[in-house]
């Protein structure tokens, strides 16, 4: 395209007077070849328009109303709440119905209790072993802050 024609076209483009066909011509021109330095802003604008046209909607169209899902979610959560409530109710009843003291012989009861406590103590000790690492904190802290 000759520079004269190009410039008059650009002038009309600026004034919003070009037709779609003319704008297409301009886009093609600025897309293809070298552009005079004083027109490089136009090149950017036309390139921008082309690039923007390549943006696509990322998702799929969902035609199911989300409100339905809210309703389903609400129903499900009510169901769960009711379920937990009744379950706990049963549990409590079972607990109170069970007799707690089932061992008659006092000596046997003593051993059983001792065994259980031993077990608890063992588990406690295993747990406590992990706490050794806490000492590291104190060591480091003492290096930094000296408290007499």
């Amino acid at each position: 395209m000759e520079l004269n024609k190009l410039e008059s076209l650009l002038k009309r483009y600026d004034d919003g007077e070009t037709s779609l066909e003319e704008e297409k011509l301009l886009k093609e021109y600025f897309h293809s070849g070298k552009v005079p330095n004083h027109l490089k802003e136009y090149k950017m604008i036309f390139n921008f328009s082309e690039e923007e046209k390549k943006i696509h909607h990322p998702g799929k169209i969902k035609l199911k109303s989300r409100r339905k899902w809210y309703a389903i979610g609400l129903a499900a959560s009510i169901l769960i709440a009711v379920g937990i409530f009744t379950f706990q109710e049963n549990e409590q009843q079972n607990f109170s119905q069970n007799e707690l003291g089932t061992i008659e012989n006092p000596e046997e009861a003593y051993y059983k209790a001792k065994e259980t406590l031993q077990m608890v103590a063992q588990i406690m000790n295993i747990g406590k072993q992990e706490l050794v690492y806490l000492d590291e904190f104190n060591k480091t802290k003492n290096q930094i802050i000296k408290i007499k």
Binding site: Y13, D14, D15, G16, E17, E41, Y42, I45
Partner: peptide
Amino acid sequence: IRVSLSRARKTIR
């Protein structure tokens, strides 16, 4: 619309 478009194009440039 032409007026508004012309303003937009000019401002950008």
